[in-house]
């Protein structure tokens, strides 16, 4: 399958297979006024299968969101058909308003104007806890 290469923009590569759509939604890429391609289940020597997102425009990416969802991804910056920069993200120490505390006893459950702040308390296992009540965030 061919997807046209991009002249100026961003390629988010090495996304764990199936994570592409989550990143697309979290970064609100559907709201951009340019072409955005999500390639899912692409063959990868390193990963077996991977997802790739190509954005046909230079935009500011929220690296905290990317680092939270998938810290193994690679970001490639393309200018005039040439990759001019390549970098990796890491799990952010603190994330704000990306996930919500599910503890009904947490102050954020009754004062909803408060920022939802989570702190990385275990880097190795990528565990985040609510800054207010310290409840572990469980994606399930």
């Amino acid at each position: 399958m061919n997807i046209d290469s991009i002249k100026n923009g961003i390629v988010i590569d090495h996304i764990k297979a199936k994570n592409g759509l989550e990143i697309f939604n979290a970064l609100k890429l559907g709201e951009l006024d340019c072409s955005v391609a999500i390639i899912t289940n692409a063959k990868s020597k390193k990963m077996g299968r991977k997802d790739i997102i190509k954005i046909d425009k230079s935009i500011d990416l929220d690296l905290d969101i990317l680092g939270y969802i998938d810290e193994d991804i690679t970001i490639n910056i393309i200018k005039d058909d040439i990759r001019v920069d390549k970098y990796h993200v890491e799990a952010p120490k603190e994330i704000v308003n990306i996930i919500k505390c599910k503890n009904p006893r947490c102050i954020t459950s009754s004062e909803q104007e408060l920022d939802q702040i989570f702190v990385l308390t275990d880097k190795e296992n990528k565990k985040y806890r609510c800054k207010y009540c310290e409840t572990l965030y469980n994606q399930n």
Partner: peptide, 24 residues
């Protein structure tokens, strides 16, 4: 509510002592 004293301390102009926040 758990975390309420932390919320209080962010905007407070005087020292806050947590005298118990839920089961926290």
């Amino acid at each position: 509510k758990e975390g309420a004293p932390l919320v209080a301390s962010i905007k407070s102009t005087v020292p806050i002592i947590n005298a118990g926040d839920g089961g926290h």
